[in-house]
Amino acid sequence: MTAIGWYVHHHGHGHLARFLAVRPHLDARVVALSSLPRPTGLPAGAEWIELPRDDHDEGEGAPALASPTAGGSLHWAPLRHRGHARRLAAIAALAPELDAMVVDVSVEVTALARLLGLPVVLVAQPGERTDAPHALGRRLAEAIVAPWPTPAGDPTGSPFEHVGGISRHAGRPRTAAARPGTVLALGGGAHDPEWTALVAAAAGASGRTWRIAGAGAWLDDPWTALCEAEVVVTAAGQNAIADVAAAGARAVVLPRPRPFAEQRATATLLGGLGLAVVADDLPDAGGLERLVDAAAALEPDWTGWGVEGAAARLAAVVARVARTGRVAA
Rank of each mutant, 00 (worst) to 15 (best):
S158Q: 07
F19D: 00
A90C: 14
A247P: 01
D221C: 07
G216Y: 12
D301V: 06
R53W: 05
G72S: 12
L288E: 07
A64M: 13
G127T: 08
A178C: 04
L42R: 05
T69L: 11
A178G: 05
R80F: 14
T175Y: 05
T69G: 12
E108V: 07
G237C: 01
L140E: 08
G189S: 12
G12S: 11
H11V: 14
P159D: 10
E228Y: 07
P96H: 13
I49R: 15
R256G: 10
P96W: 11
T268S: 14
R264F: 08
V183P: 00
G204N: 08
A246K: 03
V123E: 06
G187N: 04
L275K: 03
A225L: 07
L226A: 05
L288Q: 02
G41D: 08
V183D: 01
I49H: 15
T303F: 04
V30N: 01
G272N: 11
R87C: 12
A46Y: 08
R82S: 15
A312V: 13
S35P: 01
D280L: 08
A143N: 07
A95R: 02
V321D: 03
D99N: 12
R208N: 06
V244R: 02
R320Q: 10
R326E: 10
R82M: 09
Q125H: 15
W48P: 06
R23S: 15
L288W: 04
A297R: 14
A92R: 13
G204R: 08
A28E: 03
W148V: 04
W210K: 09
A100E: 00
P193G: 08
P147L: 07
L20N: 07
P222A: 14
A190T: 13
H134Q: 13
G14I: 01
T324W: 06
E299A: 15
V8N: 07
D221E: 05
D99Q: 06
G157R: 06
S34V: 06
V8T: 06
G248W: 03
F260C: 09
R18M: 09
A185C: 13
T130E: 14
P193E: 06
R179W: 05
A176G: 12
L94I: 06
A44Y: 02
V107W: 00
R114P: 04
G189D: 01
A90I: 03
H84N: 15
Y7T: 00
A170L: 04
V253W: 00
S106H: 06
E97M: 12
V253M: 05
W195S: 01
P180Y: 11
